[in-house]
Design a protein around this nucleic acid. Structure first.
Lengths: 279, 279
DNA sequence: TATTATTTACCTGTTTTTTCGATATGGAGG
DNA sequence: CCTCCATATCGAAAAAACAGGTAAATAATA
């Protein structure tokens, strides 16, 4: 049976490129690291690195083993963390709307029941990448992540509504002064897709890089926009903003993002018990 | 860092109920097994068994660890098998239609390219259960498996057609002498659901326990039935059977079944490269 | 109730494995 | 050709794992 330590050395060699630095990284002597690596190779009956000159170059077999080794070590760590104090920590990656608006409210409602967590806000692709590197325990995304090692499961829905200051009244949508997110934003692409028939050819009068900036621009009467209800909820309640054309509201699905090869951490399970999928 | 051997002992103790038999199972001395277990517990800072009398009774912490330990060990074995000769072996569980008709043809077409495989035919529930115990590497099922640790992905489609001997001509479907699978069969439930409107109240004149039996009964002119096109393909080509009411054909989805916590084996990957999802 | 059998946990000496420091080997660069 | 640097190897030392024996605790039995 191969040992976890051998895999640890194997991965360290990949990352550092040499047995010397790998040994340092896992606090071993160089000879021990070299030994662990050769033992792993002989157990598998296959060289994992090509020895070209004095360099170790990962070969096809090594590349095949790498993701499995990583997954094994992460799962071992997770198993230990199950019971240690660190088992309470949870690193969530959330895309902007979720991280800025939805999640704070959920965490507030379940204060105390939720593990001590850390939320990192980034776009969907970044979150997917960090999930792949096991740097995050759970992703909450608005877009899609297509990597075969990532599993998307429907979580909640987000309603995007067209909002404007109260002065705007029942004009045709296409003639309004639109404010939008920058091209490339997931939010913008959803809006363009869903409202395509209505907004064809419309040029936004303003493009802003964040929902909150747009929110403020709309409150200032600069124009109209289509924003998540969660962003503008307060302004709607206070009457500072109104919903235009409610029939054009967009429902979009929000997803949980998990790594296929990593069972839920204890903390992830607790989080999901508090904020289960609703739809 | 906990060791795989400790987990091995832990699982053996669960299965055998005592350190003595566990030691035997993993070829260790009793003292070594007892030691490994206590070391694991002290590393985790948590007792995994309650010592009640001279018995070891798995407690809540132990139950939490168990599935992770199992997954870790299986993955370690898979990683080793990646390169060993055994890495070619593949245990597929297939439900009846797939295992009896579809798979043999696929394997025949890809002869030599596919790893040396072993196909076990069972019903969907059995396959799901064996997947959960890591006794199968891959499932190919016609029905649904709902366990949270099992992942279904669409694979291919199966077309079910209404077939009869050539003597049957354009009568109303409800008035034909129907032959069906026994109640409880997945195939039968699909047929009943899809043809419900047409077949309401119809009593089959015969119920048989296998598709092949029905096939032969239909060929013998005993009646009509709704069978996978794969089952009757040959008889259709030879003109021995005809398709009645093609507009009532049923398409049903076939699924790959995998364990969420187990990355694809090398052999599974090769199998899927040969027989990829088509729809 | 006393006795026997069984099982866990611990102790001790021994064996095996792992690790270390030093050294041999071998390509890369001046 | 010689020096630099990294890997691989070797013997010694350290650490870990091991087997066998044994005490304590409990269940079963007389």
């Amino acid at each position: 049976m191969l040992s976890l330590r051998q895999l640890q050395v194997f991965l360290a060699v990949i990352e550092t490129g040499s047995t010397i630095r790998a040994a340092e990284a896992v606090s071993l002597s160089q000879s021990a690291a070299s030994n662990a690596l050769s033992e792993l190779e002989s157990r598998l009956g296959e060289r994992l690195f090509d020895r070209v000159g004095k360099r170790l170059v990962l070969n096809a077999s090594g590349r095949a083993l790498q993701p499995r080794a990583r997954a094994l070590l992460v799962q071992a760590r997770d198993a230990e963390a199950l019971f240690r104090d660190g088992g309470n920590q949870l690193k969530v990656g959330a895309s902007t709307t979720i991280g800025n608006y939805l999640l704070p409210r959920l965490l507030g409602e379940a204060r105390g029941e939720l593990p001590c967590e850390r939320v990192e806000i980034a776009n969907t692709d970044d979150i997917a990448e960090r999930m792949l590197r096991f740097e995050l325990d759970l992703g909450l995304i608005e877009g899609r992540a297509l990597h075969p090692d990532l599993v998307m499961t429907p979580w909640r829905q987000d309603e995007m509504v067209i909002v404007a200051a109260p002065s705007f009244k029942g004009q045709s949508l296409a003639h309004l002064p639109w404010i939008m997110r920058e091209p490339g934003s997931g939010t913008r692409s959803v809006v363009e897709q869903e409202l395509f028939g209505t907004l064809e050819g419309v040029q936004p009068i303003l493009e802003l890089g964040s929902s909150e900036a747009i929110h403020n621009a709309v409150r200032a009467g600069l124009g109209v926009s289509c924003l998540s209800r969660h962003v503008v909820q307060q302004s709607l309640q206070s009457g500072e903003l109104q919903v235009l054309a409610p029939e054009h509201s967009i429902r979009r699905q929000l997803y949980l993002l998990r790594h296929r090869q990593r069972p839920d951490t204890a903390a992830v399970a607790r989080f999901l018990a508090c904020c289960p999928p609703e739809s």
